[in-house]
């Protein structure tokens, strides 16, 4: 790898109850690229993603060992400030979960809790993020309407805009298009591709075609282990490992 890694995972092990969900993960997520995590359901890919911003902390019975370095800083260091870590990463979940407030307030929520109070600054931020996600023209006349009134596809873009408003460095997507129709899906996919100029993006997906369309790198996870990691074309078209080959061909699903 030529660039410096943005997230560096070292000997990460995750247990939930007495299940060993992730087994000695070592991986480097490159800067300003789209990296997709693929694998059959239940293989631990979502757990891996959530370990990046410590959302696993709230899972009952979880035990985490090893290191996750973000910009060289270990986020599982007991002294690390968890809200600060999470602010660096925007999360886009499987279904859109708009906060129970207006469109405007959804986007202003993050900046507000981080201390931005000035109306002009917030106005500008909201407009900027709505434009970045292509929502501005659709909602500019009803910024004070409840966010739950938007269509699912619009809600998901709003959630993306909401995440971008706190100025993250990394975007995490957890099967972010699985609840969307094909048109909304392709809008979100295009957004990911254009956003990688400014952000490092990590996606969990079980759709191989999507992984191929949007990502630069692919991590194949199976049974809690990283089986293969490399540039998209190589992993999908010319896998080194037998397991990867079978998964890509569709034997394992």
């Amino acid at each position: 790898m030529t660039q410096t890694p943005h997230i560096s995972v070292q000997h990460l092990n995750v247990h939930i109850g007495n299940q060993h969900i992730l087994n000695d993960i070592n991986i480097n997520i490159p800067d300003k690229k789209v990296t997709s995590i693929i694998g059959p359901s239940g293989c631990g890919k979502t757990t891996l993603l959530k370990s990046f911003n410590r959302l696993l902390d709230n899972t009952p019975g979880v035990k985490i060992t090893g290191k996750v370095l973000v910009d060289g800083e270990d986020i599982y260091d007991p002294k690390a400030e968890v809200t600060h870590i999470r602010k660096k990463m925007g999360l886009l979940s499987q279904r859109p979960y708009p906060l129970p407030m207006s469109i405007y307030d959804n986007i202003a929520y993050g900046p507000r809790i981080h201390g931005i109070k000035k109306k002009q600054v917030l106005d500008q931020l909201v407009e900027e993020q709505l434009k970045a996600t292509g929502l501005w023209n659709e909602v500019k006349d009803r910024l004070n309407a409840s966010a739950s009134r938007l269509s699912i596809g619009q809600q998901q873009r709003l959630c993306l805009a909401r995440g971008l408003a706190v100025n993250p460095e990394i975007i995490l997507g957890d099967e972010s298009t699985s609840a969307l129709d094909p048109v909304s899906t392709s809008i979100i996919e295009d957004l990911f591709i254009s956003l990688k100029e400014k952000y490092s993006i990590v996606l969990v997906t079980h759709i191989l075609r999507q992984a191929r369309r949007v990502s630069d790198y692919i991590i194949f996870v199976y049974g809690g282990k990283v089986i293969e990691f490399g540039p998209t074309e190589e992993v999908l078209l010319n896998p080194k490992e037998e397991l990867t080959r079978e998964y890509v061909k569709g034997y394992i699903s």
Binding site: K87, L91, L99, G110, R162
Partner: peptide
Amino acid sequence: VPRELGDAALSLGAT
């Protein structure tokens, strides 16, 4: 309340 709603707030850096 779906857990993801809370997660959404947390991942924006909320306490």
